[in-house]
Design a protein around this nucleic acid. Structure first.
Ligand code: ZN
Ligand code: ZN
Ligand code: ZN
Ligand code: ZN
Lengths: 165, 165
DNA sequence: TTATCTAACGTTATATCATAACAGTCAAGG
DNA sequence: CCTTGACTGTTATGATATAACGTTAGATAA
C-alpha cells in the first residue's frame, strides 16, 4: 500500500507549490543552524520529499525514494530522519495513516489538527487552537496533566465534495 | 511489548470494578439483542477482557488470553472480535497505542477523547463534547465534511502526579 | 595537525501489528 | 431436508517499527 495522496491537480495544503517548498526548506535550514540541529542530506531530502508529496507518506514510501537516490535502503534510515523532523517540528506523524507529512507552519509553536480526506487521501493541517483549548479544559477537569495531543479528523475535503456533486 | 496497564491498585475509568463490568456486559447483551447484532461467546469474552483490563490492550494481548481459554489462536480471531466491538460502539481503538479499550459509556452517542498516562499506561475516556464542537468548527472553516475524529491526549494522570510528588 | 569524541549513518536481524483468503460449523428460514 | 449467510478458525503473508552494532564523518581539543 502506498499512502501517497493522489496528485490530481488540486492542492491541499499551504506548502504546495515548488516555490513554497524552497522557502520552507530554506527556513528549516536557517532554523536548524540557529538551534544547533543538523539538517543533514538525508534529513533535508526527506523533508523535501514530504513537502513535494502533497499528502502523507508512509515511512516505506520515503525509504523507497531514498534508496533509489543512493541513500540507505533499510527502514531505520527513513524512520530516523522522519523522527528527527517530527522532533524538530518540521513534520507531523499521522497516526491514523501510519504516515508522515511536512508541517505547513514550521517554526511556529502551534497545535495542529489534521483533516484527512477519505476520497483523495489528502491531509490538511488545520489550526487547532480552539480545539486544543477545549481539550486542555477537558483534561484539567479530569485532573490530567496534558503534554501533547493527537487530533485527527476523517471525512471528505471540499474539493472532493465539489467533484462528487 | 504488552500494552496492558499495570494493575497497581488505583483505577482509572468508570468501568472499573467487577460489579460495573457485569452491568456493562448485561447492557451490551441487551443492546445487541435489540439491534440484531450477535454478541457471541468470543465477542462477549473479548469485551469482558477489555473491561477487566483497566487500560488498553493490544490485539495480541487479547489473543493470548483467548487462545489460553480454548478460542482460536490466530490474529484474525482477536481482530474480528475487536473490530466488531468497535463497530458496535462497545470499544474504542486507541491509535497511539495500537490498542483497544472498552467503552466507558456504551449505548450513548458520544464523542470521546482519550487521556493516556505515560507513567502508568492507563487510558481514561473523557467526554469530548466541547472539543468535538471546536473541531467541527475548524473543519467547517476549512470546508471539510467531518465524519469522525480521533482525539488522544498524552500526559500524566492525576494519580501518577500525586504519587510523584 | 592529529588525536579524540560523538552524532549520524547504514546494515542485519527481529519484533510488532494487521489482513487476505479459504474451509468448516451452525442456526435460521424455506 | 436443504440452502443460505454469519461466524469461527486456519494458513499464509503483508505492513509497520525498532534493537543492536560496526562504520563514517564532523566537531573539539591537545
Ligand atoms: Zn505543523
Ligand atoms: Zn479529497
Ligand atoms: Zn466510549
Ligand atoms: Zn498514571
Amino acid at each position: 500500500m502506498t499512502t501517497q495522496a493522489q496528485d490530481n491537480g488540486f492542492c491541499c495544503a499551504d506548502h504546495s507549490g515548488a516555490a513554497n517548498v524552497a522557502a520552507i526548506l530554506a527556513a528549516a535550514e536557517a532554523r536548524a543552524r540557529a538551534t544547533g540541529a543538523r539538517l543533514t542530506p538525508v534529513r533535508r531530502r526527506v523533508l523535501e520529499i514530504l513537502l513535494q508529496a502533497h499528502g502523507a507518506l508512509g515511512a516505506y514510501d520515503v525509504l523507497e525514494k531514498l534508496s533509489a537516490e543512493g541513500f540507505g535502503s533499510q527502514p531505520p534510515v527513513a524512520y530516523r530522519a522522519l523522527n528527527f523532523l517530527v522532533d524538530q517540528g518540521l513534520a507531523h506523524r499521522i497516526r491514523r495513516l501510519n504516515a508522515f507529512t511536512a508541517c505547513a507552519h514550521p517554526g511556529q509553536d502551534h497545535r495542529a489538527a489534521f483533516l484527512i480526506c477519505e476520497s483523495c487521501d489528502s491531509v490538511t493541517e488545520a489550526d487547532a487552537g480552539a480545539v486544543s483549548a477545549a481539550l486542555d479544559q477537558a483534561a484539567k477537569a479530569a485532573g490530567f496533566d496534558l503534554a501533547r495531543a493527537t487530533i485527527e479528523a476523517v471525512g471528505q475535503c471540499s474539493a472532493c465534495r465539489e467533484a462528487a456533486r
